[in-house]
Design a protein around this nucleic acid. Structure first.
Length: 688
DNA sequence: GGTTGATGTCATAAG
DNA sequence: CTCTTATGACATCAA
């Protein structure tokens, strides 16, 4: 990963160019219309690929061969990344276009038919600028152990170009069984084309392309052949060693690898030659989708949208020397194979998976976002609605800003015996203030509490203005649980008007306080104190009355300092008691809300995990189906000698443009072993 | 007799 | 500066 960062910072511009390169490579037709790689990269690719591709989708293009093809230090990393992409490419239905085109290894007798269609004439031009790197290594390699391989569009394009790059010496011990006579005939045909102005060195026999190794192609393109054109050490790496080293990579270097991948990797490692991924994780599908986004819009539209309506798209094309031959018209597009419909149908079936895989990441995370936000909103709204529905409408009208009172006084009617008593016995100023309850509620409202009304619905009740009623306070606040017996509390609360307090025999204040603290716990302490000090109001009244009234009471009643202090304390404690009740209720509400959120998120997580599991299964099935179809296609194709192609030796490379190239599968050389060892050593040295 | 939940009270910060 | 509110901490009570 440090390498990635390093090269990201160092070669951003190069990366941009390489992205454009990727964009070109996806579309083989662009190659066919161009002349050289470089010119194509510069003229065609860059703008669209760089400007239109989201950055996150480029993550997987962060391949080694795309970053710094000229840097030998990245060989190991490049190989690993390439193999990782290969794993992703396997079993990614999104990478299998419905239109399959293959260059059939078949001799076409007529020279006129041998010419390429107009759209493919550029292929030969492309090949003119390429070297024949590693073409000779294909000789003598036994591809029987390697099953048909499927690739993504990205790699497909590479394969197509690779074929064109096979303009090297004809493999001396190639596995191709095409008769030499036919080869010679093809050579003659090619020479014809060469005579038309094409470099003779770039004229390659028809069968040479077939003999090219898939791994060799990988090596070529993993090193960014179009740019560097240098020999590719990874091309000679043994595939098993590739995988062994790839699997030995720390997970941190493949952070984008899905957790489901490791077991699949083991499977792949066990049978890498077949290389058909049976299980593709959701994350892999996501990454695939990201890569898929890189495909030029034209190809993407074709695969995503225009797939279904298309008819038999399995178009086979023969891979002959025309691909490497600069002269146009050496490839003949053959008739549509009869099983095209079946293949197309299956691919259409897989296309749904591909679309699913490509869109799953966005869909899932959009859903997560929506659910998360919506869930929060739902919870909030639900709480608010539930609390509002649970509230007596009377309470909504009567409750004052002190919500603590409202919480327990809602069950009682606004009129109680205490009300008449209080109203009749209270002073005129008190009654006036009682009439002006609105002013009180606005002044004495629990502003802090109301500020949280948005999040906690029960608090919204606190803002509802109501007429001040001291009885409500006596009911809600002053039926003290712990400091007075319920019966006495009720008595004191409901039938304890201040005029009765006056009538009670009282002794010294301090003595009563002491008595209150040590002996008499039947009444609340403040109630007893109020009794002792002959306070003309109950504690509930003191607490609930507006501050203006309270101040007027303190000033106009000619109270002693002790009485004033007691009144202030009673009011303060009463207010604080209510505040404590509200605070506790808020705390409980918050805890409950968090618990509900936890449950909801757990359910959402479980659901997403199930969806991911199902998607992985679907992708695996699609990959398997693709493997079967590839084998079927190969079994129906025949080489120049008319013999059917050995599925073990050839593979179908699917291109993003819908073409399918028949490519020979070969095993890598031995020289790669040392290269891997070197890179491994380097990595080991870097690690500590 | 210890535990736990509910409640009251105090101290303190903040509006 | 005063009042009110919010909240943590502690004490107390009852189950």
């Amino acid at each position: 990963m440090q390498n990635v960062k390093k090269y990201f910072t160092e070669g951003l511009i190069q990366f941009t160019i390489l992205l454009s390169l990727i964009g070109v490579r996806v579309d083989v037709d662009s190659y066919l219309n161009g002349y050289y790689y470089s010119s194509l990269e510069i003229t065609d690719g860059p703008s669209s690929a760089y400007t239109q591709t989201p950055f996150h989708s480029l993550r997987d293009n962060w391949d080694g061969y795309s970053v710094h093809p000229k840097c030998p230090e990245l060989d190991y990393f490049f190989a690993s990344r390439r193999l990782l992409d290969e794993v992703r490419a396997l079993g990614s239905p999104a990478r299998f276009p419905t239109q399959l085109s293959a260059w059939l290894v078949h001799q076409v007798p007529d020279s006129s038919e041998f010419r390429e269609p107009p759209n493919s004439t550029g292929s030969s031009d492309v090949s003119t600028g390429l070297t024949s790197a590693g073409s000779g290594e294909a000789a003598g390699e036994d591809g029987s152990t390697s099953g048909p391989r499927t690739r993504g569009p990205h790699e497909d394009c590479q394969a197509a170009v690779q074929i064109s790059s096979e303009s090297g010496p004809y493999p001396s011990t190639g596995a191709c069984e095409i008769p030499k006579e036919e080869v010679e005939a093809l050579k003659g045909q090619i020479n014809e084309d060469i005579a038309n102005g094409v470099d003779s060195q770039e004229a390659v026999p028809l069968t040479q392309l077939v003999l090219s190794s898939a791994l060799e192609h990988e090596g070529l393109f993993s090193r960014g052949v179009p740019l560097s054109g240098q020999e590719d050490p990874p091309s000679t790496i043994d595939i098993d060693q590739h995988w062994s080293h790839f699997l030995s990579l720390p997970v941190s270097e493949f952070d984008d690898l899905d957790p489901l991948v490791p077991p699949q990797l083991s499977d792949l490692n066990a049978d890498i030659s077949s290389a058909i991924s049976q299980d593709v994780s959701l994350r892999d599908a996501m990454v695939t989708g990201s890569i898929y986004d890189m495909i030029p819009q034209r190809s993407r539209v074709r695969t995503l949208v225009a797939r279904q309506p298309r008819g038999p798209l399995f178009r086979l094309e023969s891979t002959n020397s025309s691909f490497s031959d600069p002269s146009p018209g050496t490839t003949t597009e053959l008739a549509t194979v009869p099983f095209a419909t079946a293949v197309n149908g299956s691919l259409n079936g897989t296309s749904s998976h591909g679309a699913l895989g490509g869109c799953l990441d966005e869909a899932v995370f959009d859903q997560i976002n929506l659910l998360g936000l919506g869930g929060c909103l739902d919870s909030i709204d639900g709480q608010l609605l539930g609390s509002l529905q649970g509230i007596d409408p009377r309470v909504l009208e009567d409750l004052d800003s002190d919500s603590g009172l409202s919480l327990e006084s809602s069950s009682r009617g606004p009129v109680s015996p205490g009300v008449s008593e209080v109203s009749s016995s209270s002073s005129s100023s008190f009654c006036d203030d009682e009439g002006g309850a609105l002013g009180y509620s606005s002044e004495g409202g629990a502003t802090g509490y109301s500020s949280e009304a948005d999040s906690l619905p029960s608090k919204g009740v606190a803002n509802i203005h109501t007429t001040w009623s001291p009885v409500e306070l006596s009911e809600s606040v002053w039926h003290d649980h712990s400091y007075s017996s319920p019966a006495l509390s009720q008595t004191s609360a409901t039938t304890f008007p201040h005029k009765d307090i006056k009538q009670e025999p009282l002794s010294d204040e301090d003595d009563d306080d002491d008595e209150d603290q040590f002996g008499d716990r039947e009444l609340s302490r403040d109630e007893l104190r109020a009794r002792v000090l002959h306070v003309p109001f109950t504690a509930s009244e003191i607490v609930s009355m507006p501050v203006e009234v309270f101040l007027e009471l303190l000033e106009g009643r000619d109270l002693s300092a002790a009485q004033v202090t007691l009144l202030r304390d009673i009011r303060r404690r009463g207010k604080n008691k209510l505040a404590a009740q509200n605070c506790r209720k808020r705390k409980l509400d918050a805890i409950m809300g968090l618990q509900e959120e936890v449950e909801r998120l757990q359910a959402q997580r479980d659901r997403l995990l199930r969806e991911r599991q199902h998607t992985a299964k679907a992708l695996g099935a699609a990959g398997q189906r693709m493997d079967e179809l590839s084998r079927d296609v190969l079994s129906r194709l025949s080489d120049d000698s008319g013999q059917p192609l050995n599925p073990g030796r050839y593979s179908l490379q699917c291109g993003a443009n819908g073409r399918v190239v028949v490519q020979q599968v070969r095993r890598p050389g031995v020289a790669t072993t040392t290269a891997v060892g070197k890179t491994d050593k380097r990595k080991k040295e870097k690690k500590p």
